[in-house]
Design a protein around this nucleic acid. Structure first.
Lengths: 195, 195, 195, 195
DNA sequence: AAATAATCGAGACGGTACGTCAGGTCTTAAA
DNA sequence: TTTAAGACCTGACGTACCGTCTCGATTATTT
């Protein structure tokens, strides 16, 4: 995947990687995404700029890795009802978007990804894929229970739910109270249920 | 309200205003939001940079005015059913976001607005207010017909619908086929109906 | 000479002239020649920029008039000796150059005059002519007394003396003690005397 | 002395230095000191503006280095008489001030140096120091020969001579004929001789 | 051991845009 | 026609980042 592991020559210092990612996360949180520059990240990490560019193509890729490292290994919820499962899923999404670093980075990050044709392809893949997998499982179970149709459009639902959270938390910055996830899940579940 | 109309001194040339707004819209469409600079806008408009800064505080304000001038004076739909009204409303939103200029500008524009505390306040006001008014009327009629509860949360629904369209059209850039508005409206209407 | 006195229309307000000249002198003294702008002068004088440009072609002309208004109406010295007369003359030059406004303005003013072909012609005329006249009379008397030759080069002597004072006071900014004029006069007198 | 040679990092390209100095000298000669901008110098040198600002604090410092590079390594004259030595010295000064670049730069350069407190200190040091050293030696020999007093004020004489040449060549731009140096030297020598 | 090669921190490099300011001209309404 | 006000275009300012490059030095693998 990456250029070439190429065991010749001095190997990359893994501590640099960690220091850069940490510095990027700190800076984004402190000064925001737009004011975070590669040079400043490198300086704070005690690293040369090339050491950053050797590992990431630019700020969007770096900040994405720095901010979204949760890997979200929580188990797929299985509460027995679609509404319950969706609520848990939405709560996870809200929690993820509500992180100081994520809230500070998200709008600018999405804008930079959307502006670059190559990166644009990765929005579905990198940003939404983990959530999509979990949503698919929830849908399968709900379909087995007869709650929803088998051909319920996952992408549409996911975009809608993610868009709602993004607008609420990332853009408007509103009271992301605990009832948000529950309410969204309720409306969406009711909206797609067969009856 | 504004600083002072102040009839003293030479009045601002309305042709400059028009030329700047036009140049901004063109540039955003041609090279994208990030690559659109105030200097380039001024040059294309045949205007000095000061003439731009005299009227707008920065790129976000200028591009916002340049791209979203639709004023959306279409009548509020009244098809007789909530689903029908929502479909019309959503179609309008999709059409607005799908404009070349709007599609090119939206992600970066929202990011810049979200990054500035002063501008952030205006997202609700300037971006969403027109849609909210129309949605309110639709909700009133639906409530009168008994389709939805009187206290249905407008902001939540609006964020959800706008977020969905933004993710679909602005971010993922997907085929915003004619069925998108209909499907979204159907899911949402069903989700908030009383039964 | 000037455009046209043209008694038609509103006559020029003589108080404006005074206010502008005063504001220019103040600004030059306070912030220096380079930092003195026509706009700032006009603002401090409570006058529009055009009112300034209608009377002066630019900053150099304005500041020259604002700073060198002494008109030097002291009588030509007649002490009985060349050295004595020169000392008085030099003291006058030192006093003139030592004014806060003059000291602040001189280097930049001379530079602007030297850079413009039209103004360059006026250095001899406007800056040095008054001194030259007085020096000529002193020279005539000294020649009549037999102290110097009749063809002693006035311009050369004037440039030398003025240059000396300019370098000392305007450039190096040195303690222009009372002995400066006396010493300079003594050296120059001795240098050009017949024996 | 200088901040730090600091062998760390990429060393500065000496060709850039040369190209910048050359471009500055050309521009000053072609368009004059006032119209010479750092941006234009950088563009002509094929260099970024930062590369200029990294080496010089501003236009005055840069132009000074670009224009006065003569280093004046001519031997101190020793003709056997004060008048003879002074004539040679003055001719050197006239030649230096008469260079197209120097003549174009001098007035503005001196004005900018005089306006900045830090640079003002350097006028004596950088502009006049070389001449002063040579003049000192000439004075020592003349004093040994008994032509002048041992305490003849060097600074006063230097300012006077430099000021004379500056006024003649730099400001008035007059015929700096070969007799100028001779005449000035003669007057000054006679003025300071013991008898 | 010697040669080869990639990485490291540092910082110079050519570009481009920033937002401000001055210059000098012009266009208003009022006097 | 002048006045005060201020808009207008031009172009320079000095700073900040961009992403690339060039150093000397370090740290591995391959001969």
């Amino acid at each position: 995947m990456s250029s070439s592991p190429s065991s010749r020559g001095r190997p990359r210092d893994p501590r640099s990687h960690q220091a850069i990612v940490g510095a990027a996360a700190e800076l984004v949180t402190e000064v925001g995404y737009a004011a975070t520059s590669i040079g400043a990240v490198a300086a704070r990490a005690g690293v040369g700029k090339d050491t950053v560019y050797r590992r990431w193509r630019g700020k969007p890729e770096l900040v994405f890795e720095a901010v979204f490292t949760t890997t979200d290994q929580a188990p797929v919820p299985d509460t027995g009802t679609l509404t319950g499962d969706l609520t848990v899923l939405m709560q996870g999404l809200v929690d993820e978007f509500q992180t100081p670093a994520a809230a500070a980075a998200l709008p600018g990050l999405l804008a930079d990804f959307a502006a670059d044709p190559v990166l644009k392809e990765r929005i579905r893949g990198d940003f939404l894929a983990p959530s999509k997998e979990r949503l698919l499982i929830v849908f399968e179970r709900a379909a087995a229970r007869g709650e929803i149709a088998a051909d319920t459009p996952v992408d549409l639902v996911l975009d809608t739910l993610a868009g709602a959270v993004f607008f609420h938390v990332g853009l408007v910055g509103e009271h992301p109270g605990p009832q948000l996830a529950r309410r969204l899940a309720a409306v969406m579940a009711k909206g797609i249920e067969v009856r």
